[in-house]
Simulated assay, not measured.
Amino acid sequence: MDLPIWPHAGLPFHTGELAAQERAGKRERLAAVANRVIRGEMPEQHRTFFAQLPFLLVGAVGADGLPWATVLAGKPGFAHTPDARHLRIDALPMPGDPAQSALARGARIGLLGIELHTRRRNRMNGIVVERDEAGLTVEVEQSFGNCPRYIQLRDLSFAEPATAAAAWQGDALDDQAAAWLRGADTLFIATSHTTSEAEGAHTGGVDVSHRGGKPGFIRVDDDGTLTFPDFNGNNYFNTIGNLLANPRAGLVVPDFADGSLLHVGGRAEVVWDGAELTSFAGAERLVRLHVERVVRRPGVLPLRWQLREYSPVLEDTGAWPAP
C-alpha cells in the first residue's frame, strides 16, 4: 500500500529549519526526500502506534510566549484516530501544568508518541480543533517518524498517582531542580515558530522532541543556565530550526521512578562551534537555555519506568568536562 506524501506545494520546512539544514550541509539531501517522509496525514502504522500508547508528549505555547512541554497519560487507547487526519486524546492537563491554558481550541501543538520499551517514536504536529471536558481533538498538519537513537530502554508499569502535592514554581533553578537535571538521561523539548505568509500555513508551528544522553548530559552552570548536546539525528532540524526563528524553549524532564515532572522554560541559544563544543565527543551543536521559569510537579503521572539499558549509540559520546 502506498504511503501518504506531503500534499502541499513547496517543502514542509520553514525558513529556520532550512537555514539550519544549510549550515549543517544537509539541505540538498533533505529537499530530495522531504515530501515523502513528512506527510499531511497519519499512515496506518502511526494510527495503530498512537492507539497503543499510555502517554504522549505535548508541546504548546502559553500566553507568556513560552513553549511548554508536558505529558498527557491514560490507559492505552486514550489516544485514537477517527480518521487519518485527526487524533483524539481523551486526557487534559492537570492543575499546576504550565501547558494547561496553552492547549486551547485553535492552538498549534506538537505531539510525540514514544515507546521507551521498544525505542519506537512518531511525531505529529497540528491544530487543536476541539477541546471539551474529556480531552482534545487535533487536526494533523505534519506526520513523520523518528529514528530510535539516544532512547534509553525502560520497562513500563502502571501505578496510582501519588497523593496530590502542590506544584513548586520559581523563576530560577533551586538545588532540587539542579540535582534532578544533573542526574537526568532524557529530556523533551518544545519549540515554536511563527509561519510567515510567504511560507504558507502548513510548515509547522510547535514541535516537541526527545533528547537523550549519558547521565549528566545536561550541564547546570553556576549562573543557572543549562547546556546540553545536540547529537546527529534525522537532519530535519525541527528543534534547532525553530530556535533560529524563535529562541524560546520549554523542557520537561520526567523522574521515571516516581512519576514526577520538572518543567523548565526560557530563552535558548545554539552553539555551533568552538572549544566548548569540541570538548564533548559526539555533539554536533549545543543548546544553552537561560532559565526564566521552573515548575516542579511531584508524582503526577500514573506511570513508572525501570531502566533496562542505555542506548548503545551513547558509547560514542563523551562526558561533560568540569565547567
Rank of each mutant, 00 (worst) to 15 (best):
A99R: 01
A99S: 06
A99M: 04
Q100H: 07
S101G: 06
S101T: 07
S101P: 02
S101Y: 02
A102K: 02
L103E: 02
L103F: 04
L103M: 11
A104I: 03
A104Q: 11
A104R: 11
A104Y: 01
R105S: 09
R105E: 08
R105N: 08
G106P: 05
G106C: 07
G106E: 03
R108N: 09
R108I: 10
R108F: 00
R108H: 06
R108C: 05
R108E: 04
I109H: 01
I109Q: 01
I109L: 13
G110M: 03
L111P: 01
L111D: 00
L112T: 07
L112A: 05
L112S: 06
L112C: 09
L112F: 02
G113T: 02
G113M: 06
G113D: 03
I114T: 00
I114Y: 04
E115I: 06
L116R: 04
L116N: 07
L116P: 05
L116D: 02
L116F: 11
H117M: 08
H117W: 01
T118C: 10
T118M: 09
R119T: 12
R120F: 04
R120Y: 01
R120D: 10
R121K: 09
R121M: 06
N122E: 11
N122A: 14
N122L: 12
N122T: 11
N122Q: 14
R123V: 11
R123G: 06
R123A: 09
R123N: 13
M124W: 00
M124K: 03
G126K: 10
G126C: 13
G126D: 07
G126V: 11
G126A: 11
I127S: 12
I127H: 08
I127T: 15
V128Q: 08
V128E: 00
V128N: 05
V129H: 03
V129N: 00
V129P: 03
E130A: 14
R131E: 01
R131W: 04
D132P: 11
D132E: 12
D132H: 14
E133W: 12
E133I: 13
E133T: 13
E133P: 09
A134I: 14
A134G: 13
A134V: 14
A134M: 15
G135C: 14
G135M: 09
L136N: 05
L136E: 04
T137F: 03
V138K: 00
V138F: 03
E139Q: 15
V140Q: 04
E141T: 15
Q142F: 07
Q142R: 08
S143M: 04
S143Y: 08
S143Q: 13
F144W: 14
F144M: 15
F144K: 13
G145I: 13
G145R: 08
N146G: 12
C147N: 13
C147Y: 12
P148D: 12
P148K: 15
P148Y: 05
P148M: 10
Y150H: 11
I151W: 05
I151P: 00
Q152E: 11
Q152I: 05
Q152N: 13
